[in-house]
Computed example of a mutant assay.
Amino acid sequence: MTAIVEILSALFLLMGVFLFLVSAFGIIRLPDVYTRNHAASKSSTLGIMFILIGTLLYFYYKHSHFDFRVVLAIIFIFMTSPVAGHLIMRSAYHTGVKMWDRSVQDELKKTQ
């Protein structure tokens, strides 16, 4: 049973690292602030959640230690990171940061 949990924990950790790499490449390669922020906030949130779930599984089954702080960290990051990304994008839009010239539509322009 412990070998299965170790493999599952390693898979969660590897998925988290993969999502962090996707986030880093998105920040480097995407053209404007809005798409970069989207890449950073979404994939980094999932990446840190996968890493925390992997560590929770590992320490719970390997050392019989359930740490509720990890669960609180998962909940906290899941609630705050998308909101922070959204607020950063809204503040960038309202301060006049231009969108990429190939952007198809501006949905916030319709509401103002």
Rank of each mutant, 00 (worst) to 15 (best):
G54N: 02
L72E: 08
F18E: 06
V71N: 08
S9M: 07
F25P: 00
G16L: 07
F59W: 11
Y34M: 01
R102F: 08
T55Q: 10
L14T: 12
F76M: 10
I88C: 04
S81Y: 12
D106G: 01
W100P: 00
T80I: 09
I88E: 01
R36M: 02
T55L: 14
Y34L: 02
S23R: 01
D106Y: 01
E6R: 13
S91F: 11
S23W: 03
L8R: 04
L13Q: 13
H65A: 10
R102Q: 14
G85I: 02
K42H: 05
D101I: 11
F68C: 07
I4K: 10
I74W: 05
F18W: 13
Q112K: 13
L30C: 03
Q112A: 14
Y58G: 02
S81I: 15
A39C: 06
S23H: 04
K98Q: 15
I4M: 15
L14R: 08
R90G: 05
L46A: 13
V71C: 09
L13S: 14
K109P: 01
P82G: 05
G16H: 04
K109A: 00
V5R: 05
V71E: 04
A73F: 07
A92D: 03
N37R: 06
V22Q: 05
I75H: 07
S9D: 07
F59C: 08
I48M: 12
F66G: 05
D67K: 08
D32L: 01
E107H: 05
I88A: 05
L21R: 01
A3M: 10
A73R: 06
I51R: 05
A40W: 02
D101Y: 10
Y61P: 06
A84G: 09
M49D: 08
Y93S: 02
I88V: 12
T35I: 02
L46F: 14
P82Y: 10
L30G: 03
H94A: 15
V83Q: 09
I88F: 04
L30I: 02
Y34A: 00
A10T: 15
T2V: 12
Y60S: 13
L52W: 02
Q105C: 13
R36L: 03
F78Y: 14
H65F: 11
F76T: 13
L13V: 15
Q112W: 13
H86A: 02
A24E: 02
V17I: 15
F20A: 08
R90N: 13
L21Y: 05
L56V: 07
L87M: 15
I77H: 03
L19C: 09
S44C: 12
S9F: 08
I77N: 05
H38G: 05
H65S: 07
L30Y: 03
L21M: 13
I7Q: 12
K98R: 15
